[in-house]
Design a protein around this nucleic acid. Structure first.
Lengths: 223, 223
DNA sequence: CTTATGTTTTTTGTATACAATAGTGATGAT
DNA sequence: ATCATCACTATTGTATACAAAAAACATAAG
């Protein structure tokens, strides 16, 4: 484990600060799957007491980022290939759902944002910054998610994305896929522009399935 | 608020016992939407300290059953008509997904269970016990969920169901719908028996949409 | 050498104490 | 009467103390 430092923010309760800190540490891989989350160790490392640590762990649990066994403590959740498949399966269905809802509700402004986001993604493929690229991709999909005007769905989808995060960044390193991704985004934007639900659903499906199979490959190769 | 009593269970940590107790109290309506969850009050009522109460609240938060404002405490989450719509939208998509996955994976044994569950539901419509009927319906759908062999999906679906619980029981009181429900279950069973994904998706969609519109009506009439 | 048993240490679970903030009500000025 | 201010109370946030369980280790018996 790395040196983990508290994301200072005077206004949030410590439990939230600790939660954010641990969450990010897990996502960026500083805390590795299976690694124990020991209260005392974390507390002294972050300079707080066990209380906010424990509450943060309860929160991580719910996000699927930690698993705790009673009287044995918490661990960073691992993700097996099967887990990944399970998440991908759900995300595919909900991504398509989001696209369908968004297709009906999307405003002209949001459509502009979407096109901009697609452009930005395209730009980012030219630079060599995977992190930025991932961000641009998130932004693109967030425009769609937000257009659904369904906070519970938005929340769910971002939670699912979070669970895939570690591998997603990995697979975005494969530059040979960039053209494909750009084209898929383009098709999706067109789907929204023409409000053609059939085409949109199809291209969204294609997009998430492509991502899914790429990620499957990443996780396979890692083993 | 009613007299709330601890679900004794010597093996689980108190936080889990408290969580279950509060969860059930919320679902059965003993704790009403908007009602404050005051730590000290709950602690003395349940005969435990604030610590497990606080952790249970963090857990309820994640299930969407409680909402907390920093330094102001937690409340039982309310559910507006819009919230309900949002949940129904998601559940529809995931229920169909579950049916599709289950259709491929369902074993002969599970198929028998499914038919039995449908029978049991039918039986329950004859007696006048809404609670039992709701249970039978849950069982029917659980057979399908479990057949997906996707724990994350199963978890999600049961969480969504939980959020609808209060209204679901309400709408099952309308006896005029029973025949329809029985027929829909029958169609779904047949879909699984013939492994016809098209028909199955269709009848599942019909089923959840029927439920959805009935629940919309319930919530409207309540206002 | 392996297993069983007892002891110590570590770690989690729960209660309590103290601090800080938000809410409430009384008092007084305008 | 209305509003402002202050004191007091109620409530949440955080730290710590103590209890109980699990893990680690050592020692003794077979």
């Amino acid at each position: 484990m790395e040196d983990l430092k508290l994301n200072e923010n005077a206004f949030l309760p410590l439990r939230d600060v600790v939660f954010n800190t641990l969450r990010e540490a897990i996502l960026r891989g500083d805390l590795k799957p299976g690694e124990r989350l020991m209260e005392l160790a974390l507390a002294s490392k972050l300079g707080v007491s066990r209380t906010p640590i424990r509450e943060a762990i309860r929160m991580l649990e719910q996000e699927g980022l930690a698993v705790t066994i009673p009287r044995r403590g918490a661990q960073v959740a691992g993700m097996t290939e099967k887990d990944m498949e399970d998440v991908l399966q759900i995300r595919e269905a909900l991504d398509i759902l989001a696209a369908q809802i968004a297709c009906e509700k999307m405003t002209d402004e949001e459509l502009v944002d979407l096109r901009k986001a697609a452009e930005r993604f395209k730009e980012c493929t030219k630079a060599d910054d995977v992190r930025k690229l991932a961000e641009a991709d998130v932004e693109f999909h967030d425009v769609i998610y937000n257009a659904t005007d369904n906070p519970k769905l938005i929340n769910l989808l971002s939670n699912l994305r979070e669970q895939l995060y570690r591998y997603r960044v990995e697979y975005l390193k494969d530059e040979s896929k960039y053209k494909e991704l750009i084209d898929e985004h383009e098709k999706i934007v067109q789907g929204f522009e023409t409000k053609n639900m059939e085409i949109l659903s199809g291209s969204m499906k294609e997009h998430v399935e492509g991502q899914a199979s790429a990620m499957r490959k990443v996780i396979r190769d890692q083993v």
